[in-house]
Amino acid sequence: MFGELQHELELHAPASEAWDLFGTLRIGQLVAEELPQLFQSVELTEGDGGVGTVLKLTFAPGVGGPSGYKEKFTKIDNENRIKETEVVEGGYLELGFSLFRVRFEVIEKGEESSIIKSTIEYELNDDNASNASLVSIQSLVTIAELAKSYLNKNKPSTQ
């Protein structure tokens, strides 16, 4: 069984600024600092932010789904502003998923605006098909909204 969830949010920031946040480790650092209700911790366990980097995500108690997992950066396309991660240990893999991928795309809309498109793709074996109900885009929506707020607050002065 294959599934996909998507969300788009317009940002009032140039795509280059949004990519500086999403295309690096900065988004994980921001999430760890600003979303304790969602993430107990976001730890860098391997790498420097490039392809092959591994993060250990531990969700706050009470957040639905798995308690945590390790994800690996599998694609960072600076030209097209696409970053993909896949769960490589724990979490959804322990619930019968053979693939759990998160993709962030920063799409240029205009000189001072962009869209962050968040996608979850997953594959689940048929024996565990009922676990598809555990997949939610809500944490990515929250991260996109946090990024929007952060980018709006930290706009360079145009004076």
Rank of each mutant, 00 (worst) to 15 (best):
E17H: 12
Q40I: 00
F39V: 01
G50E: 14
G23D: 12
E84Q: 15
V54A: 12
G49W: 08
G64W: 06
L57R: 01
L44M: 07
W19L: 09
F104A: 07
L95I: 00
I27Y: 02
E71V: 02
F104V: 00
G28L: 05
A32L: 01
R103L: 06
E111W: 06
K72D: 04
H7A: 10
V63I: 11
G96W: 00
L9S: 09
E34G: 13
F104H: 05
S139D: 00
Q138M: 03
E86I: 09
F59I: 03
F73Q: 15
R103H: 05
N128R: 06
L151R: 15
K56Y: 10
D127S: 14
S118Q: 11
G28Q: 07
L35W: 03
N78Y: 10
I82T: 10
V31S: 11
Q138P: 02
Q6N: 15
Y69C: 04
N80C: 14
L11K: 08
V42S: 02
L21D: 01
E71D: 09
D77H: 09
N125W: 08
L44V: 08
T45V: 13
S130C: 11
Q37E: 10
T85N: 12
T142Q: 11
L25W: 10
Y69W: 12
G23I: 01
P61Y: 00
L38T: 01
K117P: 03
S98K: 02
E84K: 06
G62K: 14
K148A: 15
N80I: 13
K109E: 09
E8D: 15
L5A: 07
L95Q: 09
T119D: 07
N125F: 06
Y92Q: 04
L57F: 12
Y92A: 05
F104C: 01
V54Y: 06
E17W: 02
E145S: 06
S130Q: 14
Q40E: 10
S113H: 11
S130Y: 08
T53Y: 12
E34C: 12
D127A: 15
K148Y: 07
F97Q: 06
V87Y: 00
S113E: 12
F104T: 02
F22K: 04
E86Q: 14
L25D: 13
N78G: 15
R103A: 06
L21Y: 02
K109C: 12
V141D: 00
G90S: 08
F59G: 02
G28S: 11
A60Q: 14
